[in-house]
């Protein structure tokens, strides 16, 4: 990889995530809420449920998850509708819906500011909000975006993979990959090697070589561990804030 020493516009190395902040319990009327920020990108998610669902939409075997995605300004467009569907299917992978038959869980996403990696930020925020609401899940998800910068001419070639891109980096990239990963690596396989974390959701833009995608996947795996560690720390702090009645 060339130009490993050069820094990005905001001073980060290509393998560096932005600073993350997670606040929980911001919305008092929601069962759970979380605001996840990755520097300039910030998303607030409110979770309502499990709650009553009108008979027309209830599922007798499990809870019905619905996602509402509100853009920063303007009304919902086709991108927001697609994002709702992707987020809903992503959360369905971890929420233990069969525990609440005939109930409904509403996840409302409000984009506060978009400076790149928006879907990743929303997935992280939604997971944090679901945990805040006390909804049982099979595990946490960690989502991260990678941008493949256009090849530099004359700098020895080799697009480098920029982790957690800003809006500018994302728009100017040759391709971007957004992944949501499980946070528990699979058990060791038969030949003794340990498989990395599995991919729950993948969406890409732009064209890239397959090898570049697989390398991006490995980088995302490493980054997801950092994100998961941060999420756990924030969870632990939030837990202790809730006073426990004398045991």
């Amino acid at each position: 990889m060339s130009s490993q020493g050069s820094l990005r516009k905001d001073g980060r190395t290509f393998n560096q995530l932005r600073g993350m902040v997670c606040d929980r319990g911001l919305l008092h009327r929601a069962d759970g809420s979380a605001k996840w920020s990755q520097d300039g990108t910030s998303v607030l998610v409110g979770v309502y449920g499990p709650k009553n669902m009108p008979p027309k939409r209830e599922d007798p075997e499990k809870a019905v998850l619905e996602v509402l995605w509100k853009p920063k300004s303007g009304i919902q467009g086709p991108e927001e509708r697609e994002a709702e569907i992707i987020l809903r299917r992503t959360l369905e992978a971890v929420v233990l819906a069969p525990l609440f038959p005939r109930a409904g869980i509403s996840v409302v996403v409000q984009v506060i500011h978009d400076d790149g990696s928006l879907l990743s930020c929303a997935i992280n925020a939604a997971c944090a909000a679901l945990v805040d609401a006390g909804i049982p899940m099979t595990g946490l998800l960690a989502s991260v975006t990678i941008a493949l910068a256009k090849r530099d001419d004359g700098a020895g070639g080799g697009a480098h993979l920029q982790l957690d891109p800003t809006r500018e980096e994302q728009d100017g990239a040759q391709a971007t990959v957004c992944l949501a990963l499980e946070t528990t690596p699979k058990a060791a396989t038969s030949n003794g090697s340990v498989e990395g974390e599995a991919v729950v959701t993948s969406t890409t833009r732009g064209a890239m070589a397959i090898e570049e995608y697989l390398e991006a996947l490995d980088r995302c795996r490493m980054a997801s561990r950092t994100i998961n560690a941060f999420a756990r720390l924030s969870l632990d702090k939030a837990q202790r804030r809730l006073e426990l009645p004398g045991t």
């Binding site: 993948s202 890409t204 064209a207 397959i210």
Partner: peptide
């Protein structure tokens, strides 16, 4: 070239 790899969630996750 890989133009898109689209996996919108779902119950199982995929390995490499």
């Amino acid at each position: 070239r890989l133009i898109s790899l689209f996996k919108p969630g779902g119950i199982t996750a995929v390995t490499t």
